[in-house]
């Protein structure tokens, strides 16, 4: 008897909490200030658009500020958010340093700060958490696919199209990739050069690889982004090599154009660098405001795309 009563009590409590949570969800519109770096790349634009669209669908009042590649603009935006008394602040920092003072001001005003995308060096007690893609994981994922695809080959020589030297995306993707191929004795990185994340750079570097190495000895190419790989595809075609068949390809970003290459049979695989971090960011804000504690880093899930679903995905993205 007692146990049944207890169960009933527990169930009632659960329903009460759930009910109020749903009620809160439906009624409480929260106001969030979002300070973006600027709009320097197509990926960044997609990131901004996804943040705004996700806020609308979640009934969040999003105040957006474009920093135009200037930290002082971003700091001014943060101060304006504090003055407006927003419920939470999301910052996509342009640079890592120089945020402590304004974060302190936000903390004094009782407004939580969430970091999205790039990192900051500020005292971790001054902000709640960071929502970001895991570049190391992306490198690992690319290598893991390559290991599977070449499992029955005795030796696979890989060339790498390195991103901009010194960028965290390039460093981490190279690290994740290198540590994973080290687990497979048949995989070997034979050359790596910087193509600066551009198509022209990727094409030029691939041309030089095809000249300095025996093209028949290259088994796969890993591009730190899709643009460089699209350039490399051009270089391979001009050298009489069939990309994706003679030389396997894998790259990161999952931009629209790489799906066209996959549909044409010129590229094998791409790792998604999701520009849609809004889901994780807004979920984190809601759970923080509900009093939950959050981990220091909330990763945005990566995924891989292959030739078989390329046409479908491309049509979905371009609204086809």
């Amino acid at each position: 008897m007692r146990s049944r009563q207890l169960l009933l009590a527990v169930l009632v409590t659960i329903f009460a909490i759930l009910g109020s949570a749903v009620l809160v969800h439906a009624q409480d519109q929260i106001t969030v200030g979002f300070a973006q770096t600027g709009s320097e790349s197509g990926w960044r634009t997609a990131f901004t658009e996804a943040m705004i669209a996700e806020a609308e669908s979640q009934n969040i009042n999003l105040i957006f500020s474009d920093g135009q590649q200037k930290q002082e603009n971003q700091i001014a935006a943060l101060r304006s958010f504090i003055a407006q008394g927003v419920d939470a602040i999301i910052l996509a920092p342009l640079v890592e340093t120089g945020w402590d003072e304004v974060f302190q001001e936000a903390q004094d005003a009782g407004i939580p700060v969430f970091i999205i995308d790039r990192n900051v060096t500020a005292d971790p007690s001054l902000y709640v958490t960071r929502i970001a893609s895991d570049f190391v994981y992306e490198g690992r994922l690319a290598a893991a696919w390559l290991a599977t695809a070449t499992a029955n080959r005795e030796q696979c020589n890989i060339v790498e199209l390195y991103g901009t030297v010194g960028s965290s995306a390039a460093i981490d993707r190279a690290t994740g990739f290198a540590e994973t191929i080290a687990l497979f004795p048949n995989l070997e990185l034979v050359a790596s050069q910087s193509g600066d994340f551009t198509r022209t750079g990727g094409k030029e570097v691939m041309e030089s690889f095809l000249n300095s190495l025996d093209p028949a000895s290259i088994c796969a190419v890993f591009g730190h982004n899709d643009d460089m790989l699209i350039g490399a595809i051009e270089a391979m075609k001009e050298a009489g090599i069939d990309p994706a068949d003679d030389i396997l390809t894998v790259s990161v970003d999952a931009i629209d154009d790489i799906f066209v290459s996959m549909m044409n049979g010129d590229a094998n695989a791409t790792v998604l660098l999701s520009p849609n971090m809004g889901v994780q960011a807004y979920a984190a804000i809601r759970s923080y405001l509900a009093g939950e504690t959050l981990p220091a880093l909330i990763p945005v899930p990566s995924a891989m795309y292959f030739q078989d679903t390329a046409a479908e995905e491309y049509a979905a993205r371009t609204g086809g």
């Binding site: 790349s41 551009t198 750079g201 643009d227 051009e234």
Partner: peptide, 16 residues
């Protein structure tokens, strides 16, 4: 030349 070479105009990086 640089645009025709990659069959695309990259406003951010072409000629940077």
């Amino acid at each position: 030349i640089v645009t025709a070479d990659i069959k695309g105009a990259d406003a951010n990086n072409a000629g940077l």
